[in-house]
Simulated scan of single mutants.
Amino acid sequence: MDLQLTGKVAVITGGSAGIGLAIAHGLAAEGVDLALCGRDEDRLRSAAAELPGVRVLTVAADLAVPGEAERLAETVTAEFGGADILVNNAGTGSEETILTAPDERWQHYWELHVMAAVRLARTIAPGMKSRGGGVILHNASICATQPLGYEPVYNVTKAALVMFSKCLANELIGDNIRVNAVNPGLVMTGDWVKTAKQLTEGTDQTWEQYLQEIADDNAPIGRFATPEEVADFFVFLCSPRASYSVGSSYYVDGGWLNVTT
Protein backbone atom coordinates (compact mmCIF):
# COMPACT_ATOMS: atom_id res chain seq x y z
CA MET A 1 0.00 0.00 0.00
CA ASP A 2 1.35 3.41 -1.00
CA LEU A 3 0.90 5.66 2.04
CA GLN A 4 1.37 8.80 -0.08
CA LEU A 5 3.87 10.34 2.34
CA THR A 6 6.91 10.85 0.12
CA GLY A 7 8.34 14.34 0.47
CA LYS A 8 6.46 15.21 3.67
CA VAL A 9 8.19 16.65 6.75
CA ALA A 10 7.59 15.19 10.21
CA VAL A 11 8.54 16.50 13.66
CA ILE A 12 8.90 13.74 16.26
CA THR A 13 9.48 14.60 19.90
CA GLY A 14 11.19 11.99 22.04
CA GLY A 15 12.58 10.82 18.73
CA SER A 16 15.91 9.35 19.78
CA ALA A 17 14.72 6.06 21.28
CA GLY A 18 11.81 3.71 21.80
CA ILE A 19 8.50 4.38 20.08
CA GLY A 20 9.66 7.76 18.77
CA LEU A 21 12.68 6.30 16.99
CA ALA A 22 10.59 3.44 15.64
CA ILE A 23 8.13 5.98 14.20
CA ALA A 24 11.08 7.82 12.64
CA HIS A 25 12.20 4.61 10.93
CA GLY A 26 8.69 3.92 9.70
CA LEU A 27 8.24 7.41 8.26
CA ALA A 28 11.73 7.45 6.73
CA ALA A 29 10.89 4.22 4.90
CA GLU A 30 7.98 6.14 3.34
CA GLY A 31 10.26 8.97 2.17
CA VAL A 32 9.46 11.45 4.93
CA ASP A 33 12.08 14.01 5.99
CA LEU A 34 12.47 14.20 9.74
CA ALA A 35 13.08 16.61 12.59
CA LEU A 36 13.93 14.63 15.72
CA CYS A 37 13.76 16.29 19.12
CA GLY A 38 15.11 14.95 22.40
CA ARG A 39 17.10 16.06 25.41
CA ASP A 40 20.32 14.13 24.67
CA GLU A 41 22.24 15.45 21.68
CA ASP A 42 24.48 12.38 21.39
CA ARG A 43 21.49 10.02 21.31
CA LEU A 44 19.87 12.19 18.66
CA ARG A 45 22.96 12.03 16.48
CA SER A 46 23.11 8.26 16.85
CA ALA A 47 19.44 8.02 15.91
CA ALA A 48 19.94 10.23 12.86
CA ALA A 49 22.79 8.02 11.69
CA GLU A 50 20.33 5.10 11.54
CA LEU A 51 18.11 6.94 9.06
CA PRO A 52 19.79 7.15 5.64
CA GLY A 53 17.96 8.23 2.52
CA VAL A 54 16.05 11.18 4.00
CA ARG A 55 16.98 14.55 5.45
CA VAL A 56 17.21 14.42 9.23
CA LEU A 57 17.39 17.47 11.47
CA THR A 58 18.16 16.98 15.17
CA VAL A 59 17.17 19.49 17.83
CA ALA A 60 18.28 18.97 21.42
CA ALA A 61 15.60 20.49 23.66
CA ASP A 62 13.75 19.88 26.91
CA LEU A 63 10.14 20.49 25.99
CA ALA A 64 9.11 20.72 29.63
CA VAL A 65 10.85 24.12 29.62
CA PRO A 66 8.80 27.08 28.30
CA GLY A 67 10.33 28.52 25.15
CA GLU A 68 11.85 25.26 23.90
CA ALA A 69 8.82 24.34 21.79
CA GLU A 70 9.05 27.70 20.07
CA ARG A 71 12.75 27.18 19.41
CA LEU A 72 12.05 23.76 17.92
CA ALA A 73 9.37 25.17 15.62
CA GLU A 74 11.64 28.01 14.49
CA THR A 75 14.46 25.59 13.73
CA VAL A 76 12.17 23.33 11.71
CA THR A 77 10.82 26.27 9.74
CA ALA A 78 14.33 27.51 8.97
CA GLU A 79 15.44 24.05 7.78
CA PHE A 80 12.33 22.69 6.05
CA GLY A 81 9.97 25.64 5.68
CA GLY A 82 7.53 24.03 8.11
CA ALA A 83 6.11 20.60 8.87
CA ASP A 84 3.28 18.41 7.62
CA ILE A 85 3.28 15.97 10.53
CA LEU A 86 3.78 16.45 14.28
CA VAL A 87 4.13 13.46 16.59
CA ASN A 88 4.03 14.48 20.25
CA ASN A 89 5.79 11.48 21.72
CA ALA A 90 8.01 12.93 24.47
CA GLY A 91 7.11 11.63 27.90
CA THR A 92 8.00 9.20 30.65
CA GLY A 93 6.42 7.23 33.46
CA SER A 94 6.24 8.30 37.08
CA GLU A 95 6.12 6.61 40.48
CA GLU A 96 4.55 8.28 43.52
CA THR A 97 1.43 8.52 45.64
CA ILE A 98 -1.01 11.40 45.50
CA LEU A 99 -0.52 12.22 49.17
CA THR A 100 3.27 12.43 48.94
CA ALA A 101 3.92 13.90 45.46
CA PRO A 102 4.83 17.60 45.78
CA ASP A 103 3.52 20.33 43.52
CA GLU A 104 6.82 20.40 41.64
CA ARG A 105 6.37 16.80 40.48
CA TRP A 106 2.86 17.44 39.24
CA GLN A 107 4.00 20.60 37.46
CA HIS A 108 6.92 18.87 35.73
CA TYR A 109 4.73 16.17 34.21
CA TRP A 110 2.06 18.71 33.30
CA GLU A 111 4.67 20.70 31.40
CA LEU A 112 6.10 17.60 29.68
CA HIS A 113 2.92 15.74 28.76
CA VAL A 114 0.42 18.55 28.24
CA MET A 115 1.95 21.99 27.85
CA ALA A 116 4.62 20.78 25.42
CA ALA A 117 1.80 19.56 23.15
CA VAL A 118 -0.12 22.81 23.59
CA ARG A 119 2.92 24.93 22.75
CA LEU A 120 3.88 22.84 19.74
CA ALA A 121 0.33 23.08 18.39
CA ARG A 122 0.43 26.86 18.70
CA THR A 123 3.78 27.11 16.94
CA ILE A 124 3.60 24.39 14.27
CA ALA A 125 -0.09 24.20 13.30
CA PRO A 126 -0.21 27.66 11.65
CA GLY A 127 2.54 26.56 9.27
CA MET A 128 0.68 23.34 8.55
CA LYS A 129 -2.37 25.38 7.64
CA SER A 130 -0.35 27.43 5.15
CA ARG A 131 0.97 24.18 3.61
CA GLY A 132 -2.60 22.97 3.01
CA GLY A 133 -3.09 20.80 6.08
CA GLY A 134 -1.36 18.16 8.11
CA VAL A 135 -1.49 15.59 10.87
CA ILE A 136 -0.89 15.87 14.63
CA LEU A 137 -0.64 12.71 16.71
CA HIS A 138 -0.32 12.40 20.47
CA ASN A 139 1.27 9.38 22.09
CA ALA A 140 -0.82 9.06 25.25
CA SER A 141 -1.30 5.77 27.12
CA ILE A 142 -3.85 3.18 28.11
CA CYS A 143 -3.29 4.69 31.57
CA ALA A 144 -5.26 7.73 30.41
CA THR A 145 -8.34 5.51 30.74
CA GLN A 146 -7.24 2.55 32.83
CA PRO A 147 -4.85 3.91 35.47
CA LEU A 148 -2.00 2.08 37.13
CA GLY A 149 -1.94 2.65 40.87
CA TYR A 150 1.72 3.48 41.25
CA GLU A 151 1.80 6.44 38.83
CA PRO A 152 -1.13 8.79 39.46
CA VAL A 153 0.69 11.83 38.05
CA TYR A 154 1.35 10.01 34.77
CA ASN A 155 -2.25 8.77 34.62
CA VAL A 156 -3.74 12.24 35.15
CA THR A 157 -1.49 14.09 32.70
CA LYS A 158 -1.97 11.48 29.98
CA ALA A 159 -5.74 11.72 30.45
CA ALA A 160 -5.45 15.48 30.02
CA LEU A 161 -3.40 14.96 26.85
CA VAL A 162 -6.18 12.81 25.38
CA MET A 163 -8.78 15.50 26.07
CA PHE A 164 -6.49 18.16 24.63
CA SER A 165 -6.11 16.02 21.52
CA LYS A 166 -9.89 15.86 21.07
CA CYS A 167 -10.32 19.61 21.58
CA LEU A 168 -7.50 20.37 19.17
CA ALA A 169 -9.01 18.02 16.58
CA ASN A 170 -12.30 19.90 16.69
CA GLU A 171 -10.54 23.24 16.34
CA LEU A 172 -8.23 22.32 13.45
CA ILE A 173 -10.20 19.98 11.20
CA GLY A 174 -11.57 22.97 9.30
CA ASP A 175 -7.96 23.74 8.32
CA ASN A 176 -7.49 20.19 7.00
CA ILE A 177 -5.35 19.24 10.00
CA ARG A 178 -6.26 15.86 11.44
CA VAL A 179 -5.54 15.26 15.14
CA ASN A 180 -5.69 11.90 16.91
CA ALA A 181 -4.30 10.18 20.00
CA VAL A 182 -2.84 6.71 20.38
CA ASN A 183 -3.04 4.85 23.70
CA PRO A 184 -0.41 2.09 23.75
CA GLY A 185 -0.40 -0.67 26.32
CA LEU A 186 2.73 -2.63 27.20
CA VAL A 187 5.60 -1.73 24.88
CA MET A 188 9.11 -3.16 25.24
CA THR A 189 11.08 0.05 25.61
CA GLY A 190 14.37 0.72 27.33
CA ASP A 191 12.58 2.14 30.36
CA TRP A 192 10.73 -1.13 30.98
CA VAL A 193 13.93 -3.16 30.64
CA LYS A 194 15.85 -0.82 32.94
CA THR A 195 13.15 -0.99 35.61
CA ALA A 196 12.86 -4.76 35.37
CA LYS A 197 16.60 -5.21 35.76
CA GLN A 198 16.63 -2.97 38.82
CA LEU A 199 13.71 -4.77 40.48
CA THR A 200 15.11 -8.26 39.87
CA GLU A 201 18.74 -7.57 40.77
CA GLY A 202 19.85 -9.94 43.49
CA THR A 203 16.72 -12.10 43.20
CA ASP A 204 16.10 -15.53 41.69
CA GLN A 205 13.91 -14.00 38.99
CA THR A 206 15.32 -12.75 35.69
CA TRP A 207 14.22 -9.44 34.27
CA GLU A 208 12.71 -11.30 31.33
CA GLN A 209 10.61 -13.42 33.69
CA TYR A 210 9.47 -10.31 35.54
CA LEU A 211 8.24 -8.66 32.34
CA GLN A 212 6.57 -11.86 31.18
CA GLU A 213 4.58 -11.94 34.41
CA ILE A 214 3.40 -8.39 33.75
CA ALA A 215 2.35 -9.36 30.24
CA ASP A 216 0.56 -12.49 31.46
CA ASP A 217 -1.28 -10.51 34.15
CA ASN A 218 -2.42 -7.65 31.92
CA ALA A 219 -2.35 -8.35 28.18
CA PRO A 220 -4.55 -11.13 26.79
CA ILE A 221 -2.12 -11.40 23.88
CA GLY A 222 0.44 -12.55 26.44
CA ARG A 223 3.39 -10.36 25.52
CA PHE A 224 4.72 -6.83 25.20
CA ALA A 225 4.48 -5.03 21.87
CA THR A 226 7.62 -4.09 20.03
CA PRO A 227 8.06 -0.35 19.42
CA GLU A 228 7.78 -1.11 15.71
CA GLU A 229 4.30 -2.63 16.11
CA VAL A 230 3.06 0.58 17.70
CA ALA A 231 4.99 2.75 15.25
CA ASP A 232 3.34 1.10 12.25
CA PHE A 233 -0.03 2.29 13.54
CA PHE A 234 1.28 5.84 13.95
CA VAL A 235 2.67 5.83 10.42
CA PHE A 236 -0.69 4.75 8.99
CA LEU A 237 -2.47 7.53 10.90
CA CYS A 238 -0.01 10.03 9.39
CA SER A 239 -1.09 8.99 5.92
CA PRO A 240 -3.91 10.23 3.70
CA ARG A 241 -5.02 6.59 3.79
CA ALA A 242 -6.37 7.44 7.27
CA SER A 243 -8.15 10.56 6.02
CA TYR A 244 -11.42 9.86 7.89
CA SER A 245 -9.68 9.35 11.24
CA VAL A 246 -10.27 12.55 13.21
CA GLY A 247 -10.46 13.31 16.92
CA SER A 248 -10.23 9.72 18.08
CA SER A 249 -8.17 7.78 20.61
CA TYR A 250 -6.92 4.42 19.40
CA TYR A 251 -5.85 1.62 21.73
CA VAL A 252 -2.86 -0.48 20.69
CA ASP A 253 -2.75 -2.64 23.78
CA GLY A 254 -2.92 -6.35 23.00
CA GLY A 255 -6.39 -6.52 24.51
CA TRP A 256 -5.46 -4.98 27.88
CA LEU A 257 -8.28 -2.40 27.97
CA ASN A 258 -11.17 -3.45 30.19
CA VAL A 259 -14.27 -2.49 28.22
CA THR A 260 -16.22 -1.94 31.45
CA THR A 261 -13.81 0.86 32.47
Rank of each mutant, 00 (worst) to 15 (best):
F80M: 06
A48W: 07
S239Q: 08
S243P: 07
L44M: 11
S141G: 05
D253N: 12
A22V: 06
A196S: 14
A35Q: 04
L237K: 01
A121Q: 05
T226K: 13
A121I: 13
C143M: 07
Y154L: 09
I177F: 02
G53N: 04
L161V: 06
W207M: 09
P152E: 12
T206L: 06
I85A: 02
L5N: 00
T261Q: 13
E95R: 15
G31T: 02
A225M: 14
M128H: 00
F234I: 02
P66Q: 12
S141P: 03
W256T: 13
Y150H: 15
P126R: 10
N170Y: 11
T157N: 12
G185I: 04
G133A: 08
A219N: 10
D2C: 11
T123S: 14
T195S: 15
V11R: 00
Q198E: 15
G185D: 09
L86W: 05
V193N: 06
L51M: 10
V11C: 01
T6R: 15
T92V: 11
V182S: 03
A231R: 01
G222I: 13
V87I: 15
A49L: 11
V235R: 02
G14D: 09
I136Q: 03
G82T: 01
I177N: 01
K166C: 03
F224D: 04
Q209W: 09
P184C: 04
L120N: 06
V162W: 08
N170I: 09
L257C: 07
D42R: 14
L27W: 00
A144V: 04
F236G: 03
G7W: 11
R131D: 03
A121D: 08
S243G: 14
L199D: 15
T203V: 11
H138R: 03
A225V: 05
T195N: 15
T261G: 07
A159S: 15
G81P: 01
R223Q: 12
S16G: 11
G14Y: 03
A29L: 12
Y250C: 06
Q107V: 09
E41Y: 04
G255F: 10
A140F: 01
A24S: 09
A35Y: 06
G127R: 10
A117H: 08
P227C: 10
E228K: 10
D33G: 02
D84G: 01
M188W: 13
T206R: 07
G38F: 00
G53C: 05
S46T: 14
H138Q: 13
A48H: 12
I173D: 07
V259H: 09
V259S: 11
L172H: 06
P227F: 08
K8T: 00
R241L: 15
L72W: 02
T100F: 08
P227R: 05
P66W: 10
V246Q: 11
G132D: 02
R45A: 15
S46K: 14
A215S: 13
D191L: 12
I221P: 03
L63V: 09
S130P: 02
L21A: 11
A196D: 10
L168M: 13
D204T: 14
V11K: 01
S239V: 06
R122F: 08
C143P: 01
